[in-house]
Design a protein around this nucleic acid. Sequence first.
RNA 1: GGGCGCAUAGCUCAGUGGUAGAGCUCUCGGCUUACAACCGAGCGGUCACAGGUUCGAACCCUGUUGCGCCCACCA
Length: 864
Amino acid sequence: MTESIERGELPTHYTPADVEGRLYERWISSGLFAADPTRHPARPHFSIVIPPPNVTGSLHMGHALDHSIQDALTRRRRMQGAETLWLPGMDHAGIATQNVVERELAKEGLSRHDLGREAFVERVWQWKGESGGRILGQMKRLGDGVDWSREAFTMDDQRARAVRTIFKRLYDDGLIHRAERIINWCPRCLTALSDIEVEHADLEGELISIRYGAGVDSIVVVTTRAETMLGDTAVAVHPDDDRYRHLVGRQIELPLTGRRIPVVADEHVDPSFGTGAVKVTPAHDPIDFEIGQRHGLPSLTVMDERGVISVHGPFEGLDRFEARPAVVAALREQGRVVKEVRPHEHAVGHCQRCATVVEPRVSLQWFVRVAPLAKAAGDAVRDGRVRIHPPQMAARYFAWVDNMHDWCISRQLWWGHRIPVWYGPSGETVCIGPDETPPEGWTQDTDVLDTWFSSALWPFSTLGWPDDTPDLRRFYPTSVLVTGYDILFFWVARMMMFGLYAMDGTEPFKVIALHGMVRDQHGKKMSKSFGNVVDPLDWIDRSGADATRFTLLRGASPGGDVPVAEEWAQGSRNFCNKLWNATRFALMNGAHVRGDLPAKLGTADAWILSRLQQVIAEVDAHFEDFDFAKACEVLYHFAWDEFCDWYVELAKVPLAGPEADDTRRVLGEVLDKLLRLLHPLTPYVTEELWTALTGAESLVAADWPVRRGSLTDRAAEAEITSLQRLVTEVRRFRADQGLKPGQRVPAVLEFGGSPLADHEEAIRTLLRLTAPAGGFTATASLPVEGVAVRLDTAGVIDVEAERKRLEKDLAAARKEVDQSTRKLNNQDFMAKAPEAVVTKTRSRLEQAEADIARLERQLAALPA
RNA sequence: GGGCGCAUAGCUCAGUGGUAGAGCUCUCGGCUUACAACCGAGCGGUCACAGGUUCGAACCCUGUUGCGCCCACCA
């Protein structure tokens, strides 16, 4: 690239597609992302395991954000000298994947039962090999610096061993058991679901009142699910409810069935809701199940696994939603409906994967007894061994781990880790570890494990557990877990439980860094139905991977949601282009990084280097806070507004003079450090530019900048700030007066004692001021920053416009003087305000007074 | 039903006691040999509302209104 610049052939625009593929190849082939647990044993380690994307997934904006953050953290730590590992992998995603493959089969007119279990699972593996894992290729487009040699899959052999091992251990410890309970059941997926796989949505239902029994022995119950009355085995009332006290213990007739059921008293009933009497259907409602347990009521299942009425009679064969109106109609015929149905909004559970209304169902399932595990998971955060960031998210975490129900882990699916329990011919049960063989002739449980069971092992199964591997010793616990707050419960809390359990109380990660959800430019959730979903690959194609990442990171305030719009990605692309051109300018002017910085720095050089030190400190602080938005902002502002707009412009003068080499060195220095600081955020463009600037191999392995306090120079900063004010004021004058930017104006600059005298040439260049020729007549005089700028505008100035302008400024300055004076005369203020505030107020007053003097002089100098 | 959070410029958001900020948008003027994917200048906000604390409040307290999210076994 350098040679082409020398030949003047460097394109004026950065084209991401020309560099991204090439650089990624180079990074991978040179092994820069490969971790080595034995290398540099004295150095700290930094490890992140990727939240494994579903094998069915493809890269969406949420991944792009998640990965951008992890890559930024890892790249920075690597530059800081840590032994880093960012470990990639995928999740087999039980139900989701099975559904995908079943849909494929359906196109061929087949169901999984036509294939049989073995052939179906084989088919899923085949699918996984062909179209699963598309996302891995997409991660390369994004530039993810992961260690591909350690890629893991939640269903591969090593992870299967981990699953078997921990299952056996939990089983032997009595923390896994099998029980007949009421669980969430999806009548479409035909499997049990855990509590968190059920999503509640408010639906408009109908609340209906039905009279049970007859005469004095009658009682009115209210329900939204009339069809379940076929399975009622009691009516419950509150024990203190005087209205029904006489009925408790008596039997009443259940309509339509002729069965007689008892009235029981149960604390759980709310006397103020409806009639205060509840029908009890233990087989089809979780609360009723518990009431049934307390009162020894029979459980009568009236629906099959597909939600179809299965009891003999007129409703047999009807789907639950068909049965409901049918039952109501039949009741109405008998005069049992005492009140017309009325609308009632209530929360209804839906299957997370297919949105089918969940049907509570009594069945035999496997459960993890979570109480001791959840306690440990809560304590690790309470003790401060694991830090949740941002901290307010900890409240949600505690609310969940402290109130967790037992976890139903069995699924009636075929795709997943099969439960490692075998049953003997006479009903014996044995749990078989990974290196054991089941007794001859015994049969394995047909259920598979909840997909989150294997995900929960991820931070250590990926490092080789249950084996004692160098990876596990070096990289566990991992440094930080980066993920969206939406899976705090699904995944994070479970990794905590299993990590602490399997690794003898050692937490799986030191920090949980939660980010928000990517949203559209109006803050709305991206969803297919809104039509506002953005594909990050489109952005990468059009604006580049760096622009895509920078846009996401720029919006990533800690824990906050991230709104994005393609317009903003173009802004980020422009920023990359700005860096490109700044470097192009520097290289064309001989910028370099050879040797020490000049011993004696010019003011502009001292200023930009001083600012750079401050930027390094700020970027470090923001990284430590996971505040990528601020890190981006600081760098964006420094690079564009300070370095490009001021330093580069100021540098043009000395570059043409005898001190040019000092300036070349400083230009090189600032760019060098700036590109390093930006590399974790925008890896491609910085790599391309930095290698061109320095001639070094790769920025990936370069050192992270360290702040040099000796380069801080407050005086230089003050001087340049003063220069900026002067230039801005004169530019304002020029713009207001309609002087074309390119128009050269003769001017005399009177510096008095101002140090800005050193910058006369620069000021003249920036303001397009020429030396006055003969016949110079100053038609405007601007006293700014102690410098009098006398301009010959050849009589074109608009006196009225300028007068209005100056008077406006004057009014503002006088208001400031009023306010500051009032404050300084206020005894309470003087007594109670901190010294720094008083000082600041004084200097503000002085500044305003100086402005008034200046403005008055300017006004006086205006031609009449 | 419980919990958490948010209301600041046209839009999206920073700003946790001391002169209201950024990006984008908008207006005006410019192809000034790094960059028009650019440069320069500018317009734009009684910081949701009502009280309170304080010398001083966008910021702390109370209430009101309007949103958002999470959890949830009132049928």
